[in-house]
Nucleic acid binder design. Structure first.
Ligand SMILES: [Zn+2]
Ligand SMILES: [Zn+2]
Ligand SMILES: [Zn+2]
Ligand SMILES: [Zn+2]
Lengths: 168, 168
DNA sequence: GGCTGGTATGTAACGGTATAACATTTCGAA
DNA sequence: TTCGAAATGTTATACCGTTACATACCAGCC
């Protein structure tokens, strides 16, 4: 099992590198799109990259306040709109919160596993799940525009009876 | 194609009967559970049954205001909590709104197709889709508690190039 | 009947989420 | 340099949902 495919980032994964690579990708994606990753927008993205947990807009404002003035909600929402538009951030409807995209750049259907123990959010892109959604819609002649799949539950680390995965 | 299995209620379906049967089922379900379907709660359910569209809590209050005083939000939310608890109502996270359950009584995983043209919401209970969710979670060792599947799109009636379904 | 405790309803205030409307600044291209 | 578009800033407001506490209703029991 490689790190890249693990749905839940291991606690020991090199998060500094994780952040750095995502920011580099963000810069590249925005350049390619001729979209401007301004300092504001970048700061919002950095907040979301700080950990693999969904963060609300007001919480983002609070964190940005730590070095400077607290931006008004509208500032945050505009930055988020931009980041979502270019595919760097996803909104989690069930949490009213936002999270950095786990694999930006490639067009992808995303589904989310949300741990209600530690708050970790895993973004998966499961073609079979996406296919099942498409198929269910097709069966009733429904044209899909925006499929939302958000699964709340418990991540492996937050289960009491946690046993090894057999690869240790 | 029978009415009972059509995901999107045909405009010509006998909605009065649809409401009546659901209310009867609601009475029975509450009796079985020794839960009290009080007039308040029943009125909220009736608002949600008025059509197959999701309704927000404040909108429910507005509609109840038409015959009497407008109940405070907390009244509405308490009724909704009750109705959700006994399985008569679902909450749609992506709309911050509520809808009457399409097939109350039987335990069922539900997925929702939400038309952004007419607002109609179809509740489906697709075992293959539910299975795909369970399988995707299992693959990453995630214990599912509450799977949310809400698919926004266009219902057959709201598509411009609508062609017959072959059964007309 | 009258107590009593649990359930349901009523009321007021508040907190969290998101947008509207409008002013100002920044930036890149002509 | 001028100009228009994009981005940011400011204020106010709308919408969604909860907290805290008071009151009313409805058993079962004395
Ligand atoms: Zn993504
Ligand atoms: Zn966890
Ligand atoms: Zn109906
Ligand atoms: Zn429609």
């Amino acid at each position: 099992m490689t790190h890249a495919t693990a749905a839940f980032p291991e606690s020991r994964h090199d998060h500094a590198d994780c952040v750095e690579r995502t920011l580099a990708a963000a810069e590249r994606i925005c350049r390619d799109r001729q979209a401007r990753l301004t300092p504001q927008r970048r700061r919002v993205l950095e907040v979301l990259l700080a950990d693999h947990v969904a963060v609300g807009a007001y919480e983002i404002a609070d964190r940005l306040a730590e070095n400077g003035r607290r931006p008004a909600p509208t500032i945050i929402y505009r930055a988020l709109d931009f980041l979502i538009e270019v595919g760097l951030v996803h909104r989690l409807a069930s949490l009213n919160a936002f999270i950095a995209c786990g694999h930006p750049g490639s067009a992808h259907g995303a589904q989310f596993l949300i741990c209600n123990g530690c708050g970790l959010v895993a973004e998966i892109s499961d073609p079979r799940l996406a296919g099942a959604v498409a198929e269910a819609a097709r069966r009733v002649d429904f044209a899909v525009l925006r499929p939302i799949v958000e699964i709340t539950g418990r991540c492996p680390a937050c289960r009491p009876g946690l046993r090894g995965r057999g690869d240790a």
